[in-house]
Design a protein around this nucleic acid. Structure first.
Lengths: 208, 208, 208, 208
DNA sequence: CATGAATGAGGTTTCATTCAT
DNA sequence: CATGAATGAAACCTCATTCAT
C-alpha cells in the first residue's frame, strides 16, 4: 500500500503518477522499468516516488490495485448483471463501444502482472476473484435461461469464454495501437464473429 | 545466430546449454535471468557462454529457434497433416499422449518470448508462420470435409482455435507442475471437454 | 550555534528537541541519525529543525553544548569543590545516588561525540577543559591533604582516574539499561570496589 | 564470511584489501566509509569487492575477524603466558617495544567495532573472549604468586586493568599519530608510570 | 578454446536540505 | 514562523561483458 503522503496529493497528480508507472511497466516490463523515467514522465522528482511508495514493487503492486479499481468503478456503473446473460452483456458493451474502452494500457498491464505472481498480494487476488464471480454469474444466468449448455461445469465454461474473449481483445489491440483510430464497423463485425463462435462453436451449421 | 564454436560442441553439451538457458529464462524472465547461473547449471564457465553467443540477446533468440526446431522435428515425425482434419489431429495426439508432451519448459519459454517482440527476428517469425500454416492446413482440411463451418475465415477460426487450446494447455500445466505426476485419465477427460466445446461451442444442445 | 528562533521557543520545547536529538544520535550514531525522526519524536515538523539549526552538524554540536550545560548546572549546585578531596567527592555523590544520575543518554552522547573530533568546536573544548579542571582541583586537593601520592603528575593521575571511573560507569550502564531498575546496594558495593582499587591499585594488601 | 573467491586471491592482495577497508572504516566510520574508495585504495574495481563479500557489513565483519587473527598470531608467537604474571607480561612487551606495535589502525578499528554490536557475530565474540581469557590467566597467575590482592574478583580486576591500559594506549596513539616518530624513552617512562599506578593506585607511598 | 576473476556502467534507494503554502 | 512535500546528489549493489591465464 502507498504511504499516506500519496493519498494527500491532488487526484490528477495521483493519476498522473499511476499512468506514468503503468505505461513504463507495460513498455519495458517490471525489471527494466526505471523509476527515474516514471518520475520524469509524471513530472516529479525521482525521490518523490519514494515519498509515496516504499519501493518499486510496492509501486507495481499498487498499479495493479489502482487499475483494478478503475475497472471496478466502470463495472459498478453498468446496469446490474444479476439478471443479465452473457450475450446480453456483450451486446450491451458493444452498443456502448465499451469492449475496448477498457483502457489499452491497463489491459496490457494486467498481462504483465500475471508474470509476477509473487506480487499478486491477497488483496489483489480477492479483487481478481470478484471479477471472475462477475463472469460466473453471467454464465449461470445464461444456463438458467437455457441459452447455453449445462452439461459442462461453469469453471470450464468460464475458462473457454475468457480464453476467446481475451484473445480477440489482444488481437484487436495489436491491430490498432492507437485506439482513436479504431474503425467502429470493423470492430462490430469482429465482435459479432467472436460471439458467433462462442455460441455455436466450430461446428456451427456445418455438416448439417 | 550462435558462433561457429557452439556448433563444434558435442550435441549433449549444446542441449545442456540450451535447456539451462531456457529454464533460466522461463523462471526469471529475460531481464533477471543471469548468464552466470545459466552457465553454472550447464556445467560450463561463464566466459564460455560468450565463446558461443555474442550476448544475452543472441542466446535468448537462439533459444527460440532451438525450441522451435525441437517442435518441428516432432511434427515432422508425425504422419503427414496434409489430409488430416483438426479433430483427427487432436485425437491422434491424445492417443499418443502428446498434447502436453510438448515440453513444458519450451511452452513457457514461448510465452516469455512473446514479451520481447524486438527479439523475434525474421527467422523466428518465419518459423512461427510455419507452425500457423500447419494449423491453417488442418482447418482448411476440416472445412473441405464439411466438419466445420465455412462461413468464417480461416484466420479467425485459427485464432479461436489457438485461444482455446493454448488456454487449456496453460491451465493444465499450472495444475501439474511436475508433468510426471499427470494422471492420464483426467487429462483425457479434460481434452475431450475442450474439444467438445470447440466442436459445439457454448450453444451445444441447449435450448434446442 | 542555533539560530535566534530556537531560543525564542518555550523552554520545554527546546528541551524536547535536544533530548530527541541526543537520543537519536546515541541510538544510531551521527551519520544514521535522521533529522525527520528527531523532528517526529520532538513533535515538531522536519522543516522546523532547519528554522533552528543551520544543519545536522550544528544540531549535533549544540547537543554537546547543551548536554554539557546540564552537567555544569548540576555541578554548580553542589557544595563547592574547592576544598574537597577526590574521595570525599565520590562519597558525597554516592550518598546522593548521583554517580549515575549523570543522565545515561547524555553520557552515551559524549561517547558518540568523541568519534567526531571535527565537530568539537573551540567552545566545546573549552567546556571540556572546565570539567577537567574540576577534577584536577580535586586531585590537587587530595595531594595537599597527603591522601594521594605526589610523585606522579596531576595529568597522569587524572587520566588514570577518568579511565577507571568512566569504565566502571559504562559497565554499570550496560548492565542496567533501565536506570530505574538499578539496585542501590549492588551499586554501592560496586562503587566501593572501584574506589578501593583506585586507592590501592592491584597491590592492595597483598604480599605484605 | 567472505566468498570463496576472496581466499583464492594472492595473500598480498587479500591483505591490501583488508587494510584498505580497515583504514577507511577507521577514518570515516562504518556508515560514511565508501566501498568505492576502499576499492580504489586497494587498486581493485568497485565491483570486485562484491565478488569477495556479500555486502558492506560482511566486509566490515571480516575486518574484525581478520584483525583479530593478526593479533592472535602475534600473541601465539610470544612466550607462553601460562606461567607469566601481569607485570612480567608488560615488562616483556615493553622490552620488545610491543606495547604499541599492536598496529594502530587495528586498535582503532576495534574501537569502531564496539559501536556496531549487531555486527559482532558469535564467531567474533568467541575470539573476543579468547583475548579476555588471556588476561584473566595473567591475573590469576599474579594472584597465585601473591603479587596482587585476592580480595577482589578477577572480573573486576580485569575491568580495572583493561580500563587503564586501554586509556593509556589511546592517549599515546593520539599523541603520536605517526608511530615511527615515537620516542622510545618517553614511552618507557609513560608505561612505567601507568604500571606504577596499577600496582599501587592513587595511594602509593603517600601519607605513610 | 576453457575458465572464472575483473570491470564499471547503470539502476535503486536514502535522506539532508529547500521551498511553497 | 510552522509545516511537510519536493528535490536530487550520492551511495550501494548487480551483473553483462571482457580479459588474462
Amino acid at each position: 500500500m502507498p504511504k499516506e503522503t500519496f493519498f494527500r496529493l491532488r487526484d490528477e497528480k495521483q493519476e498522473g503518477i499511476m499512468r506514468s508507472a503503468i505505461r513504463e511497466f507495460v513498455e519495458h516490463g517490471f525489471e527494466r522499468a526505471k523509476i527515474c523515467d516514471i518520475a520524469k514522465n509524471a513530472h516529479v522528482a525521482t525521490g518523490s516516488i519514494y515519498q509515496y511508495f516504499a519501493d518499486k514493487s510496492e509501486l507495481f503492486m499498487y498499479c495493479a490495485q489502482w487499475g483494478f479499481d478503475v475497472f471496478m468503478k466502470k463495472i459498478d456503473l453498468r446496469p446490474d448483471v444479476t439478471n443479465m446473460d452473457i450475450f446480453e452483456y456483450y451486446d450491451e458493451r458493444l452498443a456502448n463501444s465499451e469492449i475496448l474502452s477498457d483502457e489499452r494500457e491497463l489491459v496490457l498491464f494486467m498481462q504483465e502482472l500475471t508474470r509476477h505472481p509473487d506480487m499478486m498480494r491477497p488483496s489483489f487476488v480477492e479483487m481478481y476473484k470478484k471479477s471472475e464471480e462477475h463472469i460466473l454469474q453471467l454464465i449461470q444466468n445464461s444456463k438458467d435461461k437455457g441459452l447455453i449448455r449445462n452439461d459442462i461445469s461453469n469453471d470450464v465454461l468460464m475458462e473457454y469464454f475468457v480464453a476467446v474473449t481475451e484473445r480477440f481483445k489482444m488481437r484487436w489491440m495489436a491491430k490498432y495501437e492507437d485506439l482513436t483510430q479504431m474503425p467502429q464497423d470493423e470492430l462490430r463485425e469482429y465482435v459479432e464473429e467472436m460471439l458467433e463462435l462462442l455460441k455455436h462453436g466450430l461446428k456451427g451449421g456445418a455438416n448439417v
